[in-house]
Nucleic acid binder design. Structure first.
Lengths: 248, 248
DNA sequence: ATGCATTCTGACGCTTCGTCAGGGAGTGTC
DNA sequence: GACACTCCCTGACGAAGCGTCAGAATGCAT
C-alpha cells in the first residue's frame, strides 16, 4: 500500500467528480429535457472524457436514477424533520404534506427525473445497486407515513375505514399527491384545467381526503391553516423563504 | 382526376395501414418498452419500409402519441356511456370511475404510452395537430366530470367545500386516480406497499374523497357497492366479462 | 405503348451509445 | 534519477437508431 493521504486525495477527487456529474446532468435535464441529455454533453460540461463518466454510471438512465436518489435524500430530510413536529397525529400528517410541498417547490427538477425513471424500460438500464437504493428509499418514506397513521389509530383519532390497512391509506395519499404533481408538471394540462394554484388545490384535497377517512379532528373541528402556519414557522422557516423566492 | 372508387381503394389501404402501424407499435411497446420500440421494428412488423412509416408519423414519439389518441377514444366511449347512467349525481360519478377502472384493466398499454408522452421533451416531437387533439381530448373528458359535479351542486347534493371550483374538485379526483394508476403500474412500488388489489384501493379512496367533499349521499347513507353492481350489469356487462379474463 | 402522378424503398449521413486498447500520471523501490 | 507497477483517463471505434431523399415501382389515363 502507498501513502494514505494521497490515496484519499485521489478518491476525494473522484467522489467530488460524481457530484459534478450529477449537477451537470440536473442542469442539462432541466434545460434540454431527456432527449437533450447525452453522455457526451455531460462529459463536456465537467471537462472530462466520456469514458470517465462511464466509470461512475453505466448509462444515461443510470445517471438520472442517481440524480433522483441524491435529491430524494433532501426530500427525506425535510420529511423527517416534519415528522418531529409535535401535535395530534393528523397535524403531523399535515406537516409531512407541507414538507413534501416545499420540497417540490424547491426542487422542480426532481419531478422530471422521477417521471423519466418511472418508465419501466428505462429503469431497467440502471445498476442493480441503485435500483435497490431506490426501493429502500421508497420504503423508508412509506414507513414514516404509515407510522403516523398507526399512531392516529393507537390514539383513537382514526378508525381505519372500509377495512383498509394503514398501507392502503398511505397508498391513497401518495396517489393523490403524485397525481397532482404530475398534472401540475405538464403545463398544457393545467391550462385546460385553468388552475390558479395547483399546490393549494392538492393541499386542500388532501385535507378533505383525511376528512373522508374520518381522521379526527376533522377540518370542521380544528384550524389546520393554523397548524400549517406553525409548521412553516417552527420547522421550515428557511425553506418557506427560499420557496417564496423560487418561481415554480 | 381519375376514377373515384380506385382512388378510394388506395386511400382505404393507406388508412388501414395506419391502423396496422398503431397495432404493431402498441404490441412492441408492451413487449419491449420505450427503448425497444424502433421505427425499423415497426416497419418490419407491418412489412413495409421505414420510409412508408414516416409518411404517417413524424417520429417514434409521434407514433406513441397517436397510440394514446386512438386508445383515448375508447376511453371516452366508456366514459360517455357511463355518463348516461341514471341516478343521483354521485352515482353517476361512481359510474365514471368504474368506466375508467375498466378501461385501464382492459388496455394496460395505454398507461405506458401515456407516461412516455407525458415527458415534456418527448411530447415536443409530435406534430402540432396531434398535440391539439390531445389537448381537445383532455378538455372533453374534464368537461364530463365537471358537468356531473355541477349537476350535484344544482341538485343540492353538493356544496363546493373550501371555496373550491368544480374544476379544482375534478383536478383532485383525476390526481388521485392518475397517481394510483401510476403507482400501480410500477410493480416495484406495489411490492413495497404490499397491496393486494390496487384497483379496489383506488376505488375506495375515491369514495372516501367524495365523502370528504361532503357529496351527498355519503357512503354511510347509501350503498354504493350496489350502485357499482348496477353500473356493471346495466352499462358494462361485456367489459366486465372481458376484464375478468384479462390478467392485469 | 407511353407518359404522368403518386407511392414506396432502402441506402445514406448523422447522432448517440457504450467499449476498450493504449497512453498518461502518480507511487514505490532501488 | 531510473525503473516498474498500478491505476486512471482518453478518444477512436463499431453498433444501432434516426430521419431523409433520389430513384425505383406502381397504378392510372390516354
Amino acid at each position: 500500500m502507498h501513502d494514505v493521504s494521497t490515496q484519499t486525495r485521489k478518491q476525494r477527487e473522484i467522489q467530488q467528480r460524481e457530484g459534478r456529474i450529477l449537477d451537470a446532468a440536473r442542469r442539462i435535464l432541466l434545460e434540454r429535457g431527456y432527449l437533450g441529455l447525452t453522455m457526451d454533453r455531460i462529459a463536456q460540461a465537467i471537462d472530462y472524457s466520456k469514458g470517465t463518466v462511464y466509470q461512475h454510471f453505466t448509462s444515461k438512465e443510470d445517471v438520472i436514477a442517481a440524480v433522483t436518489i441524491q435529491t430524494f435524500e433532501t426530500r427525506m430530510d425535510l420529511i423527517e424533520r416534519a415528522a418531529t413536529f409535535s401535535g395530534r397525529p393528523r397535524e403531523r400528517m399535515v406537516a409531512l404534506g407541507e414538507a413534501d410541498e416545499l420540497f417540490f417547490r424547491l426542487y422542480p427538477d426532481y419531478l422530471r427525473a422521477q417521471q423519466i425513471i418511472r418508465i419501466g424500460s428505462l429503469l431497467a438500464k440502471t445498476s442493480d445497486e441503485r435500483l435497490a437504493t431506490i426501493q429502500a428509499q421508497r420504503s423508508r418514506m412509506l414507513g414514516i407515513a404509515t407510522g403516523v397513521i398507526r399512531d392516529a389509530v393507537a390514539q383513537g383519532d382514526l378508525v381505519l375505514p372500509m377495512q383498509m390497512t394503514a398501507e392502503e391509506m398511505a397508498f391513497g395519499l401518495f396517489s393523490l399527491v403524485l397525481g397532482g404533481r404530475t398534472l401540475t408538471g405538464s403545463r398544457s394540462e393545467l391550462s385546460v384545467l385553468g388552475m390558479a394554484d395547483p399546490f393549494r388545490t392538492i393541499r386542500q384535497t388532501t385535507f378533505l381526503l383525511l376528512d373522508g377517512f374520518g381522521w379526527r379532528p376533522l377540518t370542521t373541528e380544528w384550524d389546520y391553516e393554523h397548524t400549517l402556519q406553525r409548521v412553516r414557522q417552527e420547522v421550515f422557516p428557511n425553506e418557506v423563504e427560499r420557496a417564496r423566492g423560487a418561481r415554480v
